[in-house]
């Protein structure tokens, strides 16, 4: 074994197409509020970017409780995309993020192509304070009988092709894992003009209350996240990276810096931390520090040098 030489000049910056990040660690949508809630625990300027809670055209109240349930090494949630709506986001949430100089990615959701387009046009007015828009395609398409856009390559293509036309802000497409073949969906996003893809969103799941003989979550189904889904997410990131040329952001159960290294080795250019922040609000910084140390010790000068060819 060769001598370990510590590097001092590693470069943590990554470019996801036109999106520049100071380091590859981002916070995942729905697990960091609108950023501000986390400030006592985490210096948001120290991480790559914050992806805010999914925003819709109109405010959404969310699902009836119970909304969350713990499963072995996992979290089942059916929040129901509760959010303040794009208007309140722009007037009440974004100004603070802008003032603090925080790299902000806005996650959006809609029930029709029209809604996604309108959201993107509205957000375009604030293009200088939005680093990228992340499109959550896991939402039901009302026109297609409620089948999620992200379930089919066609649905994914349709949304993405329309939104890239209406905004200059770079587009990240967040893929749903609830599909037969992630590679065809990833390719559809690329073909439609996405600048990057992020995956995975939560895995469709459920739990049953055996005393009450009924589904445990108010919404019957929920999304599974946390360490339990990491091996699945890792496999999908590996597959997606090999299927497309655009950058891949790895998400799913990342809780330690070692998990982060695995995703980067699988071919991710950046990662997002979700459930780990809920468990320990300062997780992202610990993961970034661990990753940095690992890269120094092992002599990786830049993030993409971690990729397994």
């Amino acid at each position: 074994m060769g001598e370990i030489r510590e590097l001092s000049d590693i470069n943590l910056e990554v470019s996801l197409g036109p999106i520049r990040l100071k380091n590859p660690v981002m916070l995942a949508s729905g697990t960091c509020g609108y950023g501000r809630e986390l400030t006592p625990h985490l210096d948001l300027n120290s991480i790559g970017a914050v992806v805010v809670k999914g925003i819709s055209l109109e405010p959404r109240p969310g699902n009836p409780p119970p909304r969350i349930f713990e499963t072995p090494c996992g979290l089942l949630n059916a929040i129901g995309l509760e959010n303040v709506g794009v208007k309140a986001f722009l007037t009440e949430k974004l100004p603070w993020l802008k003032d603090q100089g925080i790299s902000t990615v806005v996650n959006i959701l809609g029930n029709s192509v029209e809604e996604y387009k309108r959201l993107c046009s509205i957000l375009s007015e604030e293009s200088q304070s939005i680093l990228a828009i992340e499109i959550n395609v896991s939402c039901p398409n009302v026109k297609a009988g409620g089948v999620a856009f992200g379930r089919t390559p066609e649905g994914t293509y349709e949304v993405v092709r329309h939104v890239v036309e209406v905004t200059e802000i770079p587009i990240i497409v967040k893929l749903s894992p609830n599909v037969t073949d992630i590679t065809s969906i990833a390719q559809a996003a690329q073909d439609a003009g996405a600048h990057a893809i992020s995956l995975i969103n939560t895995i469709l799941a459920m739990a049953i209350d055996i005393e009450k003989k009924r589904p445990l979550l108010g919404n019957t189904f929920g999304g599974l996240s946390g360490p339990a889904i990491k091996p699945i997410a890792l496999r999908m990131v590996w597959e997606a990276h090999r299927a497309v040329d655009i950058p891949v952001i790895g998400i799913g159960g990342i809780s330690t810096w070692k998990d982060a290294v695995e995703f980067l080795m699988a071919g991710a250019s950046a990662i997002q931390i979700g459930t780990a922040t809920l468990v320990e609000p300062g997780s992202a910084k610990k993961i970034l520090d661990g990753l940095t140390r690992f890269m120094r010790q092992k002599g990786y000068r830049e993030v993409e040098a971690l990729w397994i060819d």
Binding site: T31, L38, P65, R67, I68, L278, V279, P281
Partner: peptide, 25 residues
Amino acid sequence: ESYMACGIGLCLGCAHKKRGDSEEY
């Protein structure tokens, strides 16, 4: 009380219905 994931307002998991006709938590 309710189930809680984060305890600090990040996840919106601890919703409880507000009084009134509108669906608000």
